[in-house]
Computed example of a mutant assay.
Amino acid sequence: MILEIDDLVGGYSRVPVLKKVSFKVEEGQLVGLIGLNGAGKSTTINHVIGLLHPFSGTIKVGGKQLKDDAEGYKAQIAYIPETPILYDELTLREHLALTIRAYQMDEQAAWQRAQRLLKMFRLDNKLDWFPVDFSKGMRQKVMIVAAFMTEAKLLVVDEPFYGLDPLAVHDLLNLIQEKKEQGVGILMSTHVLDTAQRYCDRFVLLADGKVKTQGTLAELTAGGQTLDEVYLNLARDEQHG
């Protein structure tokens, strides 16, 4: 089990946003985290990547907890945020070099992986560009390259499709499949349900900081509903709750 969340209570102040959230991500599994805005998806992700500390409950990545082994915990995670985060004063080449040092990767092997990704996303001739030169889509591709060049056991991907052209979306989905085949666990937050329905192995539906339901597509749609209908019914129940 690469990610285990048990009875997680947490948030940004002393008022809990998450209320006893529990779910797992296994090796080689893509889990879709879905829910309305404000349901708790970003709060869950921020706890997983270590930006927030639980009020109670546990989060384990590869069997490690942040409070016991922060370095060992974070070294297993690569994160692609919804809004790209780049350093204005660093070139693309310097961003990737920083990633290599941060994850203590073998430099030659890491650059080989990076070169393949750069070519795939048509960034291989832009290594000396600064973030100011990149469009939003190109910035997102930089984040994808930096995350996928690592050998992290857990990929946390927050709304990855916004700003990407159709070819880049296709390439990203192929990369996700590759990582799954390598045994990497992936937690992906997304509103793009038709894509999630085709690619995710399991789903966790959040509403009001709670896991309302979780399971495979077959389990969630056993009543004859589509995933869209399950999601919309959840949304209506939350609004009328």
Rank of each mutant, 00 (worst) to 15 (best):
I100E: 00
R101K: 06
M120T: 12
R93N: 01
R122H: 02
G241Y: 03
L127K: 09
A207T: 00
P81K: 08
N233I: 01
M138K: 10
K24A: 08
M188T: 02
L175V: 07
I77L: 03
K179R: 12
T195D: 09
R93Q: 03
L92C: 06
V48R: 06
Y73L: 05
V169G: 03
A70F: 02
R236M: 07
R236I: 01
K212M: 14
V132G: 01
S135M: 03
D7Y: 12
E71D: 10
A39C: 10
T195I: 15
D7G: 06
G57H: 00
A97Q: 10
N125P: 03
G223S: 11
I45K: 02
V145E: 04
D69H: 02
T99S: 01
F23H: 03
I34P: 05
I100N: 00
K179I: 01
I100R: 01
R14K: 13
N174L: 14
E89A: 02
V9R: 12
I2P: 08
G10Y: 10
R198V: 00
G28V: 12
T190I: 08
D201Y: 08
L193Y: 07
V230L: 13
D124L: 04
L205T: 13
E4Q: 13
V132L: 10
L18A: 13
P54N: 09
L173N: 15
K24N: 15
I85Y: 11
M120V: 08
P160C: 09
H170V: 01
G11L: 15
Q104K: 09
D128C: 07
R113C: 02
E181G: 02
A168K: 10
L52G: 07
P166V: 11
R101G: 00
G137N: 09
E82D: 12
S189R: 06
I34R: 13
D194A: 12
S22H: 09
I45P: 14
L234I: 04
A146W: 12
D165P: 06
A78L: 13
Y103W: 06
F23R: 07
A207S: 15
P160R: 07
A102P: 04
V157G: 03
I186H: 08
D128R: 08
F130Q: 01
T58G: 04
V145N: 01
M188Q: 04
L90M: 05
Q112R: 10
L8V: 00
V157Q: 03
G183Q: 07
A222V: 13
T216S: 02
S56I: 04
L36C: 04
G50S: 09
L227M: 15
Q214E: 14
N125I: 06
Q197E: 15
R202Q: 14
T216V: 11
G63K: 11
A114M: 03
K74I: 05
L98D: 06
F148D: 05
L127H: 12
M143S: 14
V31H: 05
G11Q: 13
M1A: 14
